[in-house]
Design a protein around this nucleic acid. Structure first.
Lengths: 193, 193
DNA sequence: AGCAGCGGTAGACAATGTCTACTCGCTGCT
DNA sequence: AGCAGCGAGTAGACATTGTCTACCGCTGCT
């Protein structure tokens, strides 16, 4: 980040900063180059195409998310259901607080998931979720991976539709808490208290 | 659509065609104008900005979706749970078959939901869902609008994450049927088979 | 010493969204 | 009848973007 950091690192940092501050559409090659203090052709040395740079930026987003998962897991108690609740809350908060980054992270048309290497970004996070889900899964539920996938999709859909604006309008809710708990209760059974 | 159709209609039709065929990123003002056989400045007369044209195109997408909802409701039997299943299947199929349009429809950064007028597009569709949900809702479930919102979000998340590629990888499924039924069972209770 | 190559610059190109000047044809007023 | 005015569409300009290519300077090797 400082002036003597490598150009490559500065480019990614500038891009992350830009997408967080101004949203996905502001993340142009040339603007990043400007903010990194290099010529508009410089990024090409490290990222052959715009998509490659965007993928690197999105990767930082996933790293951030992973760090938050870990931190959430440390902070939450041992009860798996409580851990899942904390995880869901964190996911929705992340999406709301870093909307531009969240969008970028799941824009497959911009990222070309091959370049992003799902196996190293989102799958490890999914594994944490699947592990917890397996611990609270009831016999009649769907297999653990499917159950976890459905739950993830639910959180993800809430995050996106909430940001889109129709969900708050339709449900009349002023925050997404009711939806979060509805989703958790639906997939994992009613909360144990 | 024919040659003597109004320029405005031809522009929207060309845009719809383009987004269906080539995806969201192909829908540029100038390309639409070219396909509609008018100069690149012509669209401006009807759509002051690119966003306005995109919103008009997305609106066609919602109209299409609404027609499918109606058709699905006509074709499905009277049982509300079966109707919900049909609706969910249709939603996922629509998203998969018209990926570019589906993306456009929910890109709030491109549409500026004000221009899209949610009240006239997605809310009526949500009402159909909420009505059915109310019929199968159990006493301990969340209030009907919240329950319906959570279910919609689940379907929506499945559609998007599936297209994104991580969900099939993580769940090991080859189609989204397992996820669809997991979501329905979770929110509405086990299927009465 | 000389040279090869990496890291970065600078200019060009096509494409895009927006803006503005203009032309043409019709309509309505006097 | 004739003409002013306006709506619809054209055409050209401009800034900006992603990509490509020619170039330059330095560093390290032989």
């Amino acid at each position: 980040m400082s002036a003597e950091a490598s150009v490559r690192a500065r480019l990614v940092a500038a891009g992350v900063d830009l997408v967080l501050r101004e949203g996905q559409s502001a993340v142009s090659l040339r603007e990043i180059a400007r903010r990194a203090g290099v010529s508009h052709g410089a990024p090409r040395r490290y990222f052959p195409t715009h998509v490659d740079l965007l993928s690197a930026i999105a990767r930082e987003g996933f790293a951030d998310l992973a760090a938050r998962v870990e931190q959430t897991m440390r902070a939450a108690g041992p009860d798996p259901r409580a851990r899942l609740t904390a995880l869901g809350r964190m996911y929705l908060d992340f999406a709301a607080a870093h909307r531009g980054m969240f969008e970028l992270m799941f824009r497959h048309d911009l990222l070309d998931s091959g370049r992003l290497q799902l196996r190293e970004t989102s799958l490890p996070l999914f594994a944490v979720l699947a592990d917890l889900v397996a611990q609270v899964r009831r016999p009649t539920d769907a297999p653990a991976p499917v159950l976890a996938g459905a739950l993830w999709a639910n959180l993800h859909g809430i995050a996106q539709l909430w940001a889109w604006g129709s969900l708050p309008l339709a449900t009349g809710a002023t925050d997404d808490d009711a939806l979060l708990h509805a989703a958790l209760d639906a997939h994992l059974g009613p909360a144990p208290d």
